[in-house]
Design a protein around this nucleic acid. Structure first.
Lengths: 330, 330
DNA sequence: ATAGGCGCTGATAACGTTGTCGGCGTGAAC
DNA sequence: GTTCACGCCGACAACGTTATCAGCGCCTAT
C-alpha cells in the first residue's frame, strides 16, 4: 500500500480510503490511486486488515462429515446465508471425534472467524468459554450441548421417531427393530427415545434384543439385522435412526434377498423414492436447520445479546411404501 | 501476549517461544509462562501471526456446489489432505457462475490462504496472474483452464464416455441418446466427444436429434427424453453426462413407467447398485481427484517450482444391469 | 586465570492495514 | 477583512505477533 501511495504521489491514508470506498475523496485523487493500484497489481492484505479491525468476515462450520448428504445440504444452506451476510465459510470435519472437534474449533476461534456453527460430537464444551468471552459467537446445530449456554437448532428427534415407528405399528407391525448410532450421539438417544415412546403408546413391550446401536458400517448392520430377523421371534419391521444406517440396512436387506421386512428411516435421502418399494422416511429439513443456525449466528454477530434460544425444526413423515409392507401373517 | 509476559514476569519473546514450542526455553520459564497463559485464558491471535509470518496455514477450495455428492466427496478428500499438511480448508460454492467464482477466489487470495484449488466454471482465468505472482499456488481440478499456466487434475472424460457408450452399443443398441450439461462446461463437451467417438468407432451415425444439453433440472430432462423417446425413430438407450442428469433421467423414466430404455451414466452415485435394475455407470474417483489436486497443491506450497503438471485419473465402467437391457426388437 | 563459546533471555523493529487527529485550503458569514 | 466551518488530505500510532540481534551468565579449554 505504501508503494501505491508513493507511486500515486499521495498519502498512505488516501489509498486506504480509496480501497475502502470511503466517501470523502476527490475524483482527481481517486483516479490517481486507482491507476496506481492497477499498474502495480496491488491487492489489499486481508490479514493486516483483520489485525487492525478485529473482524474477519469469516465464519466456521464444524461437523461430522461433509460428504454425508445430510450435512452437505446443511453446509450449503449455511454457506448461502454466510455469503448473503458478506462472510466466507470455513468448513471442517470432526469425524465425530470430540478431541478433533475441539482442535478444529479452537483453530478456527484463534482469530480466524467471527463465529462458529458446530454440530457437537458430545461431551463438555465449556472449553469454549474463553473464546465466547473474547467475543466469538457460537451456535450449535443438530445436537445440543453441555457446559455452555448458547443457541441451539434441533430437529424434532423424539417426536419424529415416534411418528415413524407409529406408522409401522399402524400398519400392523408388533415386532419392530431399531438400528441407530452409538449412545454418545445425542440424536441417537433422542430417536431411540421416540421409538420407545411409540411402542409404549401402543402398549407394546420394549425388547432390548431388537435394538442395535453403533456406527453405520456393513458389519454392524449385518450383525444387528441377523440378530433381529433370524431369531425365534423375528422383527417384521425395522426403524433406522439415520441416513447412513438406512442405506446400510437397505443394502443388507438386498443382500439377504429380503423383501418382506418393512422399513422406516429417520432422515430423507436422494433416490429413496425411486427404490422399490420407495423408502418411507421421517424427513428432516437440513437446509432449514442450516439456515436457521446461520441466521441465529448472524443475529449474534449483529449485536444481539438476548438469552440463548433453542429452536426445534419439525420433521415430516413421507410414506413411500417400505413402511406399508404388512407383517407376515404368523 | 504482553499481558502474559508481564503476568509471568518474563520477556515478550519468551512467551512467543513458548507459544510456538521453540526448543531453547528453560523449564522454569516454561512453567511460569504456561501458568500465566492458563490463568489469563490467553489465545494467540492468528491474524497477527499471519501478518508477521506471511503464511496462513489455510487453503481454499472453490467449486460448483458442495451439496453435489461428487463434489462433496472431492471436498472431503481435499480436507483430509489439507489437515494432514497442517492446513485448514475454506470452501465456497461458485454455483457455476464465473463472476461469483472470481469474487470468491479473489476474496480467498486476499491474504486468507496460501493456495487455492478451483473447479473452474470456464472462461479466462488470467485475472489470477497477480495472485500467482504474489506467491499463491493454484491447482485446477475436474476441468482445465485457459489464460494461466497451472497444475490440472482431470478425469478421463473422453475415454470414459466412449467406454460407457461402447458398452451400450455392444449390448445391441443403435439409437443412443445423450443428455449432459451445457456446452460452457468443459466436462460436458469432453463427454459428448466421447459419445460421438464411440458412435463413430461403431460406424453409427451421429444424430443431433438425440442430443440434449442443459442443466439437470426436471423440465430439461423431461423435454429431452420426450424428444428422444417419442419420435419416429426413438432411442433405445440413453447415456447421461453426469450424476445429476442421471438421477433426473431415472426419475423421468420412472414417471413415464419406462423400464425398457437402457441407461449408462457418467459418474457413480450412492444407491445406483440398489435400484432395479442397477444403474451401470462410468465411475470417476472423486476422492482420488481431490487428493491428487491437494497433493499437487502442497507440493507447490512446499517450494516445487517445476513445470505445470496435468494429471488424468482413469475412470472405470461398472456394469450393473441398466446398460444390458436389450433394444426392443424393432 | 582468562578467553571463547554456548545456552538462554529480552529489547526493538518490523509485518500492512485503519483510526485519530491536526493542517491546509476554500467558501461563506459577520 | 477577519473568522469560522467544512471538505479534503497526510503523519502517526496502534493492532498482536515473530525475527533479529545483543546481552548476560556459565562452562570449558587453554
Amino acid at each position: 500500500m505504501n508503494d501505491v501511495a508513493r507511486h500515486a504521489g499521495v498519502g498512505l491514508k488516501t489509498v486506504s480510503r480509496v480501497v475502502n470506498g470511503e466517501p470523502r475523496v476527490s475524483p482527481a485523487m481517486l483516479k490517481k490511486v486507482l491507476t496506481a493500484i492497477e499498474e502495480l497489481g496491488f491487492r489489499p492484505h486481508e490479514g493486516a486488515r483483520v489485525l487492525r479491525r478485529g473482524r474477519t468476515a469469516c465464519v466456521g462450520l464444524v461437523l461430522g462429515d461433509v460428504a454425508d448428504p445430510f450435512y452437505s445440504v446443511l453446509t450449503r444452506a449455511v454457506e448461502r446465508t454466510a455469503r448473503a451476510n458478506g462472510h466466507l465459510l470455513f468448513t471442517a470435519s470432526s469425524e465425530e471425534d470430540p478431541e478433533q472437534e475441539r482442535q478444529l474449533v479452537q483453530a478456527l476461534c484463534a482469530g480466524r472467524v467471527d463465529g462458529v456453527i458446530i454440530v457437537p460430537t458430545g461431551g463438555d464444551h465449556s472449553y469454549l468459554a474463553p473464546d465466547v468471552a473474547a467475543g466469538i459467537s457460537v451456535v450449535f446445530v443438530d445436537r445440543p450441548v453441555q457446559g455452555i449456554d448458547a443457541d441451539v437448532v434441533l430437529s424434532a428427534n423424539v417426536d419424529g421417531a415416534r411418528q415413524g415407528v407409529a406408522h409401522l405399528i399402524q400398519q400392523g407391525h408388533r415386532r419392530i427393530g431399531y438400528l441407530g448410532d452409538a449412545e454418545k450421539i445425542f440424536t441417537a438417544v433422542e430417536r431411540e427415545q421416540g421409538y420407545r415412546r411409540a411402542l409404549a403408546d401402543a402398549g407394546l413391550p420394549y425388547d432390548p434384543a431388537l435394538v442395535a446401536r453403533g456406527r453405520a458400517d456393513p458389519e454392524f448392520v449385518h450383525a444387528g439385522l441377523q440378530r433381529m430377523l433370524d431369531g425365534p421371534e423375528p422383527a417384521t419391521a425395522v426403524f433406522t435412526g439415520n441416513n447412513r444406517t438406512t442405506v446400510a440396512v437397505l443394502r443388507e436387506l438386498a443382500a439377504r434377498g429380503d423383501r418382506r421386512t418393512a422399513l422406516v428411516g429417520f432422515d430423507d435421502f436422494e433416490l429413496a423414492d425411486l427404490l422399490e418399494p420407495g423408502v418411507t422416511v421421517v424427513a428432516q429439513d437440513a437446509a432449514v436447520l442450516g439456515r436457521s443456525a446461520a441466521d441465529l449466528l448472524f443475529q449474534r454477530l449483529g449485536g444481539d445479546r438476548s438469552q440463548a434460544h433453542t429452536i426445534e425444526i419439525p420433521t415430516r413423515l413421507i410414506p413411500r411404501g417400505s413402511g406399508e409392507i404388512p407383517p407376515a401373517t404368523a
